[in-house]
């Protein structure tokens, strides 16, 4: 089965890297994956989206058609991409955002991703790693070994501890009940 994930936010928030890390963990876990992104010419600011497709079989078309998972870290991205979802899609948003009309609250995981990165981990720039930890806990995608492998390949040497802390803080944002509800099997 093809599982389509979209990560969205503002350029500089690291949503592309979050999507790459999920793809990297997928390779470590022996899955097929295609990762891609779309962004404007600016390096910072501007709407940014990245996509990861996971499957146990060969992936033909390389772009997301209707995602079953959406991460949104800005209101602009949420309002835009909430309209392009597969039925029953899981939507993870930062708790500072307002759930737009038409989106069922039941499918939304509203989590203090940015605040946790800033206050608990101590660095706002780890928000994308916090998000990856939360995504993995909620969807139950990878074991710890594959997830850590995915992260390790994309962080500077010496920042491992900070990033493990961010992953764990992210995972703690999702309750076991929520994880049971949103779990996906590929």
């Amino acid at each position: 089965m093809r599982y389509e994930m979209r990560f969205s936010g503002s350029g500089g928030q690291g949503v592309i890297l979050a999507s790459v890390i999920v793809a990297e963990a997928a390779v470590a876990a022996g899955l097929q994956t295609v990762q891609s992104q779309a962004y404007g010419p600016e390096a910072r600011g501007g709407m940014c989206r990245a996509e990861t497709i996971l499957s146990r079989e060969r992936i033909w078309y390389s772009k997301v058609v209707r995602p079953s998972f959406l991460l949104a870290l800005t209101q602009q991205a949420l309002d835009k991409y909430a309209r392009e979802l597969e039925e029953g899609a899981v939507v993870m948003i930062d708790s500072g955002l307002t759930i737009p009309e038409g989106l069922d609250e039941d499918q939304v995981l509203s989590l203090p991703i940015l605040a946790t990165a800033r206050d608990e981990v101590g660095k706002l720039m780890t928000a994308n790693i916090v998000a990856v930890g939360a995504v993995n806990k909620a969807l139950g995608l990878f074991d710890e070994e594959a997830l850590h492998e995915g992260v390790r390949r994309h962080i500077p040497v010496g920042t491992e501890e900070l990033n493990w802390k961010a992953l764990e803080a992210g995972a703690r944002l999702v309750s076991d009940a929520q994880a049971a509800k949103f779990r996906r099997t590929l």
């Binding site: 793809a23 390779v27 994956t33 990762q35 891609s36 390389s62």
Partner: peptide, 9 residues
């Protein structure tokens, strides 16, 4: 750009 910016195993 499709192939250049795409990541795959």
């Amino acid at each position: 750009e499709i192939v250049g910016h795409m990541r795959e195993g």
